[in-house]
């Protein structure tokens, strides 16, 4: 069975690079965007199975991107995992409130990320 396609939206290229290499190693197909606007361009063509979305981004922040993703019929069913800078209860609550599937606090490692993917997609990581 082909592995899932995962999208990462983050303005920090280092994070994208990390996620990309890590997930590729585990056989995932990875696409990325460095801003919310770029993400919407990508999403015209691609349909990922899961999106990692950074909260702190310039211009359009993660919460706004999340709201718009949930407004668009084409994307509203894609699970979104929010990437938050700190493990703040406020961010957890807002993640749930705006319809995110889960959240992941930075800094995170491979295991954290794979665990979240498994939880959200309900697949095995091995």
């Amino acid at each position: 069975m082909p592995k899932a396609k995962i999208m990462i939206i983050d303005d920090e290229e280092a994070i994208i690079e990390f996620v990309r290499t890590a997930l590729k190693t585990f056989g995932y197909d990875v696409i990325w965007a460095t801003s919310g606007e770029m993400a919407f361009i990508q999403l015209q063509k691609e349909k990922p199975d899961l999106i990692f979305l950074d909260v702190m981004m310039p211009h359009m922040n993660g919460w706004e991107v999340l709201e718009l993703l949930k407004t668009d019929e084409a994307t509203q069913s894609i699970p979104v995992i929010m990437l938050t800078a700190l493990d703040k209860p406020k961010d957890r609550l807002q993640s749930a409130k705006e319809g995110a599937a889960d959240f992941l606090a930075k800094p995170f490692n491979h295991n954290h990320m794979l665990e979240k993917i498994r939880d959200v997609l309900g697949e095995s990581v091995a």
Binding site: E17, A33, T34, E37, M38, I41, Q44, L68, D72
Partner: peptide
Amino acid sequence: LLHDPKITPEERALAQAHSDFLRLKR
């Protein structure tokens, strides 16, 4: 590798219009 894929001005305009539409729809 990490640069965003090349996009045409038309694509960018379309994406902008799409986000504006989503904002209104919301």
